[in-house]
């Protein structure tokens, strides 16, 4: 009854059930948290070129160039105001969304940033270049009047759901009607 095996088994089983309960409590405690926050964006320089995207196709595609400002206090808001133990990492990304004659919806991530817990995340970025190329699938950028920039973030928890939250606030700009040479 009191053999080493029986004791070891009891200790292991108890440890495991405590861990499972704690993990589940961690998940439950943050299931209802509202993570929304506000952001401010501005575009500075906007250009559009017409080039082939090498390695993808030989056709000429529109390539946008923008620089932007971004202001936000996301993780500050989440960790200080809500004091949340179930946020391991944020994946913050800026999306350009627009419509072209051939595609009714285009979404391109132009910039992203991984923010780990405890890192400074008061983002006040000035005159930033995009991290990824703004290639359109065709020639739909020149003269496009309605390109919307939005900021979203994917919360990676210690355990639980993986919500994607759109920050409040967006910025709309238009591309020039002439290609830059």
């Amino acid at each position: 009854m009191h053999s080493l095996l029986a004791r070891g088994n009891a200790v292991l089983a108890y440890t495991l059930s405590v861990l499972v309960t704690l993990t589940f409590a961690c998940f439950l405690s943050t299931i209802m948290v509202d993570y929304r926050t506000a952001t401010e964006m501005k575009t500075l320089k906007i250009e559009v070129k017409n080039l082939p995207e090498y390695g993808v196709s030989k056709k000429l595609n529109d390539l946008g160039h923008i620089t932007f400002n971004l202001d936000t206090d996301i993780l500050f808001f989440i960790t200080i105001n809500l004091f949340n133990w179930n946020v391991k990492q944020l994946f913050v990304y800026m999306t350009a969304e627009y419509e072209t004659p051939t595609n009714e919806l285009n979404q391109i991530i132009l910039w992203d940033k991984i923010i780990l817990r405890g890192e400074n995340s008061n983002l006040h970025l000035k005159n930033m270049r995009t991290k990824y190329y703004f290639w359109d699938d065709g020639n739909g950028l020149r003269g496009n009047k309605n390109v919307t920039l939005t900021l979203s973030y994917n919360i990676i928890p210690n355990v639980g759901r993986l919500p994607i939250i759109g920050a409040i606030g967006s910025h709309t700009f238009s591309f020039p009607s002439q290609y830059t040479r």
Binding site: F91, T102, N103, E104, L105, N106, Q107, I108, I109, Y132, D137, N154
Partner: peptide, 14 residues
Amino acid sequence: RVLKIHEKNNGTIK
């Protein structure tokens, strides 16, 4: 993670 999407008018998406 998904980086880019293009959704055609007939609903097909790449």
